[in-house]
């Protein structure tokens, strides 16, 4: 269960929010000039990256405002929250790096459960 920082209300439990999928997709104003294939792409296709993903969230049980968030899908960690219409802020994240395409820590997946010789101990965040 995430803690989500609504830009208008502050830290709240994920139960108050609804996810709205990929952010920064602008509805085309020239739809009538678009080919079926281009239009179909816009309607049906979404990015699904492993790593930093800008996505929309709706504070449905709170202020009822839509806003954007940056989440690291490789580690399921929120990195930033920002209002609609703003550009995504610069963030630092533990990004996929291992040969298996895992972030070096945080996914809980097989490749990164155990430290390799030479990795230093401590905390990451």
């Amino acid at each position: 269960m995430f803690v989500i920082t609504c830009p208008y209300c502050g830290e709240r439990d994920q139960a108050e929010f609804v996810s709205g999928g990929q952010a920064h997709r602008t509805r085309p104003l020239n739809a009538h000039e678009m080919s079926d294939a281009d239009w179909g792409d816009w309607v049906f296709m979404r990015d699904n990256p492993k790593g930093i993903f800008a996505e929309r969230w709706f504070h449905s049980a709170g202020c009822r405002r839509w806003f954007n968030a940056l989440r690291n899908t490789a580690t399921d960690q929120f990195l930033a929250f920002y209002p609609m219409g703003e550009a995504p802020p610069a963030v630092e994240a533990v990004l996929p790096a291992t040969p298996a395409g895992e972030a070096p820590i945080g996914s809980g997946n097989d490749a990164v459960k155990v430290m390799r010789p030479g990795e230093s101990e401590g905390t990451t965040t």
């Binding site: 820590i105 945080g106 809980g108 155990v114 990795e119 401590g122 965040t125």
Partner: peptide
């Protein structure tokens, strides 16, 4: 989701790198 470290002296895994607080 912390990472374990193999410890030869203990002959066991112990916590290595933390991920959460």
């Amino acid at each position: 989701r912390g990472k374990l470290r193999w410890d030869d002296d203990l002959a066991a895994y112990r916590p290595g790198l933390s991920w959460q607080k």
